[in-house]
Computed example of a mutant assay.
Amino acid sequence: MGATRHSKVLIIGSGPAGYTAAVYAARAMLEPLLVQGMQPGGQLTITTEVENWPGESTIMGPDLMVKMEAHAAATGAEIVSDLITSLDLQKRPFTAIGDSGTTYTADSVILATGAQARWLGLASEEKYKGFGASACATCDGFFYRGKEVVVAGGGNSAVEEALYLTNFASKVTLIHRRDSLRAEKILQHRLFKHPKIEVLWNHTIEEVLGTEAPLGVTGVRVRDVHSGAESVVPCDGFFVAIGHAPASELVKDQLELHHGGYVRVEPGSTLTSIPGVFAAGDLTDPVYRQAVTSAGMGCMAALDAERFLAAEES
C-alpha cells in the first residue's frame, strides 16, 4: 500500500499556471505540494523559441519551464514526479491518487492540468511539431514573416488563425475538408475578402512534407475528397486549428464545465463550483491560451487559496 501525503495546497499540473501557483503559495507559507503529471512543463516543453515571455527577448520553451520549476522549488514548493489518476472532490480533505500508489490529501486544490491542441493524427505532423508544424499562430506566426503558410480547419479557430497569420505571411492557404465553413459569418466575411488568403475546399491533408537536416516543412500533400486526386501545396509553415481539448477528465463529473469541457470559474477569480477547489490556466481558458495569461491565473489561484484557507482557520 502506498504512502499518504497531506498538504494545505495540492497543485495538479506543472505548466506556467501550476509553477506560478506554487511560487505564490510557497511565499504565503502554505507549503504547497505540486504533482507534475505526465508532461512536466506542459505544452511549452514541445515548443522551440518563445519570444513573447516578458523579460526574455527569446528563450527556448523547455528552458523556460526548467527555470520556472527551479524557481518554484527555490521558494519552498515541493515538486513530485507523479501522475494523478483519480481525484475525489466530494469531501474535505480532498483526496487524489497517484499512479505511483501514493495518496495525496489536501485542504485545497489548484487544478492546472492545461489543455492540448487537437492534431490531425498524422505521423508526419508529429515529426515536424516545433519544426514548421504548429497549433498556435499567436505563438509561432512571427517566424513566418514573408513566407507562405497553410492552416487546416473550418471553424472559428481556423479562420481566426488564418487572419492573424496575414500579419506576417505573404500567403495563407486555408484547407477545409468540406465546401463551407463552420465559422461565424462575420469571420468568414473577413476571410473571403482578405487578399492574402486562399481557401482550398473539399480537401484533406494526407501528409506534411519537409526536409530532414535540418527539419523543416516544405509543403503538405492533400487529397480531393470527391475525386481522390492528390496534389502538393507548398508552404513553409503548417498550422492545425481544429480546436483544443482541456484536460478536465479528472473533474468532468465533479465540477461545472462549459465551452466543451473547460472548467468554469467565477469571473475575475479562479473559484470553481466547489469551495476550496481552484482552477487556472488553459484548463479554464478557451480564448487566450498564452503562457503569460496562464501564469497570471496561477498567481490568482494561489491568492484565492490563501484567502480561502485563512477564512477556514478563522
Rank of each mutant, 00 (worst) to 15 (best):
H176E: 03
H176G: 03
R178C: 06
D179T: 10
E184R: 12
K185E: 05
I186T: 04
I186S: 01
Q188L: 13
R190D: 11
L191V: 11
F192M: 11
F192Y: 14
H194K: 15
P195C: 05
K196W: 13
I197T: 06
V199M: 08
V199G: 04
L200T: 11
W201C: 07
T204V: 09
E206K: 15
E206V: 13
E207D: 15
V208T: 01
L209V: 11
G210E: 08
T211G: 12
P214M: 12
L215W: 06
L215E: 01
V217T: 10
V220D: 00
V220W: 05
V222F: 07
D224E: 08
S227C: 07
G228N: 00
A229Y: 08
E230A: 06
S231R: 09
V233F: 02
V233R: 00
P234I: 08
F239N: 09
F239I: 09
V240F: 08
A241N: 00
A241K: 00
S248P: 06
K252C: 15
Q254W: 11
L255F: 06
L257I: 14
H258A: 13
H258V: 13
H259D: 09
H259A: 10
G260Y: 04
G261F: 00
Y262A: 02
V263C: 01
R264C: 03
P267R: 00
G268M: 10
T270E: 02
L271C: 14
T272G: 02
S273F: 03
S273A: 11
P275N: 12
G276T: 10
V277W: 08
F278W: 04
